[in-house]
Design a protein around this nucleic acid. Structure first.
Lengths: 199, 199
DNA sequence: TTGACTAGACCGACCAGTCGGTTTATAGTT
DNA sequence: AACTATAAACCGACTGGTCGGTCTAGTCAA
């Protein structure tokens, strides 16, 4: 807890602040204050604010996937049931995972043309996340013989639903819209996979 | 063209810059430079950058809805067909409408706790847009006797799909993801309304 | 004693916002 | 039509403060 390095404390603080405020609106002084670290330590660990942002993004994606890559759904053999249980698992965890936003989404919006290295890393990190999702969704589509929608394309859409629902939840100051958005995606998946439900 | 007031030129410039860069990363100097207007004129028209942002958001929502409120779909009598034609219309227009992002989405992410007046206005403007969407989606749901999903809830989800797809398109530097995201929503709507399609 | 790390005062560039003044548009008077 | 009066629109150099980033002086473990 208190043993973590200044570097990690800075990354944690940056993730927290940039998730809710974005990149530009988050100042280095705020980060070091929240991290409880001096500015010298910041610039010893990172060459620039931009380099910190990239490190924070990488750490965020890694930790984020670690939190959802092991759930009850992994025990399910049937690929369709497993995919649906996975989406349900994400829905259940969403309020905790993205309570104040998503770092990748928050940063991506404002760096498109100004910081090419950052947006390129975001591109790669989202791609990793989508591949992880696709590894769960693709077998379900294959089991139903669906070929006109790829697991990757559906994963990108799932990601869009999550990011977009974070925006509606934030804008309307109503966290439940996040869970509801994911529930709609789950419903879409059920209809796609033609799962019978008690009506 | 050249007859528009300094105020409107500032609003146009602010919409353009804040859509792609967000609120904090857009400076007043950049805005007045793009608008071809002096800084004094800016502060003659607006009391602050924040007041400009609110004016730009209001103008954006108004113009945005005006661009989609009149399409071929309005001629269709059947509510189900009209709703689907509307979503198709949005899909067709999406690349033009949100080529560089959505101002409301871009600004909403970074103002949650720092600028309560701005986020409150975004809340209201999104709500207006959702009500406009709901006026088209609700009759389709009613025509199919669907009561467990309200038109408003589906509209919020539609908005989330749009905003989220803007993020995936921006992050992956691939504009077609926006159109693809909306196509998924259209597919979801077709399945919900149980529309028969040639397979 | 050396080298990784911490500390915070300090720097110049840049930020939002100000201010005194000029130009332009409108309206009334003759 | 010509002149004056008034108000609003517009202008850009300027200001106080904040930004990301630097620098020198330490601390401490091996």
């Amino acid at each position: 807890m208190s043993k973590q390095t200044a570097k990690q404390k800075v990354i944690d603080a940056a993730q927290q602040l940039m998730t809710s405020r974005g990149y530009s609106a988050t100042t280095v002084d705020e980060i070091v204050k929240l991290a409880g670290v001096a500015k010298g330590s910041f610039y010893h660990a990172f060459q620039s604010k931009e380099e910190l942002a990239i490190a924070a993004l990488e750490d965020y994606e890694e930790k984020g996937w670690a939190l959802v890559s092991n759930g009850p759904y992994v025990e399910i053999d049937d690929p369709v049931e497993r995919a649906l249980a996975f989406v349900q698992f994400i829905e259940d965890k969403s309020a905790d995972l993205w309570a104040h936003g998503c770092l990748l989404g928050s940063v991506s919006i404002e760096v498109a043309h100004s910081y090419p290295e950052v947006i390129q890393r975001i591109d790669e990190l989202f791609d990793e996340f989508e591949d992880n999702l696709a590894a769960i969704l693709t077998p379900a589509l294959e089991a139903r013989g669906i070929t006109d929608i790829t697991g990757k394309a559906l994963s990108i859409h799932f990601l869009a639903v999550i990011e977009g629902s974070i925006i509606t939840a934030k804008s309307h100051l109503n966290p439940s819209y996040l869970q509801q958005g994911i529930a709609h995606f789950k419903h879409y998946l059920e209809l796609l996979l033609a799962v019978d439900k008690a009506m």
